[in-house]
Design a protein around this nucleic acid. Structure first.
Lengths: 104, 104
DNA sequence: ATATTATTTCAAGAATCATTGAAATGAAAG
DNA sequence: CTTTCATTTCAATGATTCTTGAAATAATAT
């Protein structure tokens, strides 16, 4: 991962609606949630929710799968972790001061 | 920290120039670097560098101090760590899957 | 086949963010 | 006290992102 890529990924996290989507999907667990329920949970119109789901999906933070009529989304923790690792190790040179945040 | 705040902080990280600034300051260590040297290092004009320094400064990721004619900047690891902690604990409910990224 | 449900896509407009170069500020030196 | 050096601020412009509501697509049920 280079700086351009990482910047784009941070961009995907730089929106409150999208952080709420992630929280909702984390709470829902491995089965995930369908687009309609996500829209309800973050209190956004279907098209607005869809816009933010697309952003998170394109960045790889969430994965989707069709189940009958509905599209279910779930979190990809590996991808989120990968970005945090980039920040801690590449950008911040493995600084213990920063890595410590994981144990607090 | 709430989602709006966190989103704004991720926004401050969502730019390649700004990630390069952070890397340069981490490499420079606790003494930091002055604005001109930062501009040189990230290959940006003074005003462009200043714009990005202001964004990082307003978000609290970097601190500045005048030394004679120059303004020196340095990283605030606590602030960066605070954002990562928010993401891991608040957004992602302390998921071990995500917290593991710190040990990899 | 047609209707219903779930979701996305699209176009238009509004809002935010980034870049540029010129002018303004602040501190120090001659 | 004027000049120089370091940096920021500003205005203009361009680029990107977000929101809205309407239309399109995809799967299922009647």
């Amino acid at each position: 991962m280079n700086e351009e890529e990482a910047a784009a990924l941070f961009g995907a996290l730089s929106n409150a609606d999208r952080l709420r989507v992630i929280r909702a999907l984390v709470e829902a667990g491995p089965d995930g949630l369908n687009a309609g329920d996500i829209a309800d949970k973050i209190e956004a119109s279907p098209s607005r929710a869809s816009f933010h789901l697309a952003a998170l999906s394109e960045s790889g933070f969430i994965l989707r799968e069709r189940k009958s009529r509905s599209l279910y989304y779930r979190v990809d923790f590996e991808r989120i972790g990968g970005l945090l690792t980039f920040l801690m190790d590449d950008c911040c040179n493995g600084s213990p001061q920063l890595r410590n945040c994981c144990n607090s």
